[in-house]
Design a protein around this nucleic acid. Structure first.
Lengths: 222, 222
DNA sequence: CCTACCGATCGGTAGG
DNA sequence: CCTACCGATCGGTAGG
C-alpha cells in the first residue's frame, strides 16, 4: 500500500509543464505551505488514513490532483507536516531557554521547558505536534529516522535539568525513565485539555511541576 | 463515511439463511471471538482506517463478507474490541485490589494500581487497550459514551488513593489533574516499552511511584 | 496548477 | 458462514 522505496521530498518542487513566472514562483511557496497547514489540521482531526488527498486539496482551494504537483506522495506530505512541526518546536524551545539566566536553577529550567512545551502542544495552530505523536506509524523507515533525529534533539535538552534534579534529590526516578514518563504525561494533555476551560497553561505547568518534583509554585496553590 | 445512526451491536448475532445446528451455534461464539481478537491486533498495528475488513476476515480464516454476519459494521467491531478490552481491564483491576488488606496504605494501593495497569497495558495479548486509547476518534457518539462509562469506572478507582496521598502531603498536585497526568505517563509506555528489554514491570512500577510520590521502593533502587 | 482519467481497493449486501 | 457482486472512493498520473 505504501511504496517500499519512497523518494525523499525535496524543498524545490519538481517542474512540469510550462515554467511559472517569477511572481508565480514566489506564490508556489504559499501554495505549498497552504497544503501543509491544511494537511496538519485534517490529519489531526481525521487521522492520516482517514484523510483523502482530495480533502486536503479542497481545504487548500485546489483541485484533486494538485497536491501531487507539490508533493510526491501523500506520505511525503505527512512527513513535511511533522518536519515543520518539529522545526517550530525546536525553535520555540531554543528561544524559551535563551531567556533563562546562565546558571538558572534546574527547577526553573524544567518549569520553562514544561511551559513552552504546553505552548507548542496546546497553543494556537497546534496541529503539527499531535500529528507527529499519533501518526508516527504511517511514516516509512527513512522518514521515521529523520523525525526521530529531531525529537531526540528536542528531548535531549531536558536531560541536564533532569539529571541535576536527580542529583539534588528533587527527582526520585532515574532521569532517562523520568523523561519518558514526563513526556507521556504532558503529551497526553492534547487528549483532554481544552484551551477555553478553567485551567490556564500556567496552572497546568504548576501542577506538572508539583507532580514530578513536588515543587509548590507560590503563584498558584490550592 | 460513517453511518449517522449506527445500530448498536447486540450480543446475539442476527440470523440469516439456514439456521445453524446446536454444535455450530456453540462455535459461533468462537468465530465471533476470533474476529475480535484478530481485529484488536490489526487495529493496533495498522490503525482502524488502515485495516480493511478483508484483512480481519483473512486473519480469522474467513471470506471477505463474513465479518458482517457477526457485526453490523466495521465500526461495531471496533466498539466490541474496546468494550472487551475495558471489561478485561476492570476485572483485572478488581482482582488486584481484592488482594490488598482492607486498610492498606495509599502508597500500596497506588503501587498495586500502577502495577496491574502495566500488566493490562504491556502484558501478553495487550492489543485491546492501546486500540481503545488511540482509535477513540473512530467511534460514534453513542459508542464513545458507552466506553467512556467503562473508563470512568476504571479510573475512578484511583481517586481515593490519590486523595489520601494528597492529604498526607505525598502527592503535591491536585488529585484530579494528577490522575490525568499519571494516566498519560503510564499509557505512553505502549509507545516505548519493550517487554524483552531490561526494564521489568516491577522496576517500571517502582520508577513511576518514585516520580509521582517520591516513593523509593526498597526492593529496587538505582 | 487543472482536466480527465486509471486501476485498485473498500465497506457492505443479496441470496443461499 | 460463502459467493458474487455493487457503488463509491482512493492515491496517483499524463498531458498541457
Amino acid at each position: 500500500m505504501r511504496p517500499a522505496e519512497p523518494v525523499h521530498d525535496t524543498s524545490a518542487p519538481p517542474r512540469r509543464g510550462r515554467p511559472p513566472k517569477t511572481a508565480a514562483e514566489r506564490d508556489e511557496g504559499n501554495r505549498r505551505q497552504a497544503l501543509i497547514t491544511a494537511a496538519a489540521r485534517l490529519f489531526r482531526t481525521k487521522g492520516f488514513d482517514g484523510t483523502s488527498t482530495r480533502d486536503i486539496a479542497a481545504a487548500a482551494d485546489m483541485q484533486s490532483g494538485s497536491p501531487f504537483y507539490f508533493f510526491q506522495s501523500k506520505q511525503a506530505l505527512l512527513h513535511a507536516v511533522m518536519q515543520e512541526g518539529m522545526a517550530r518546536a525546536e525553535a520555540h524551545q531554543a528561544q524559551a531557554l535563551a531567556t533563562l539566566p546562565a546558571r538558572a536553577a534546574p527547577e526553573d529550567r524544567l518549569r520553562t521547558l514544561v511551559r513552552q512545551h504546553f505552548e507548542v502542544l496546546l497553543g494556537p495552530g497546534s496541529d503539527f505536534i499531535p500529528v507527529m505523536l499519533y501518526e508516527w506509524r504511517s511514516l516509512d523507515d527513512a522518514q521515521r529516522a529523520s523525525i526521530s533525529a529531531q525529537t531526540a534533539a528536542y528531548e535531549g535538552e531536558w536531560m541536564p535539568a533532569l539529571r541535576a534534579l536527580h542529583r539534588a534529590g528533587r527527582l526520585k526516578a532515574r532521569p532517562a525513565v523520568a523523561r519518558l514518563f514526563i513526556f507521556g504525561a504532558l503529551n497526553w494533555a492534547v487528549q483532554w485539555y481544552s484551551p477555553g476551560g478553567k485551567l490556564s497553561l500556567d496552572e497546568l505547568t504548576a501542577q506538572a511541576l508539583a507532580l514530578f518534583i513536588g515543587e509548590t509554585d507560590p503563584r498558584s496553590s490550592g
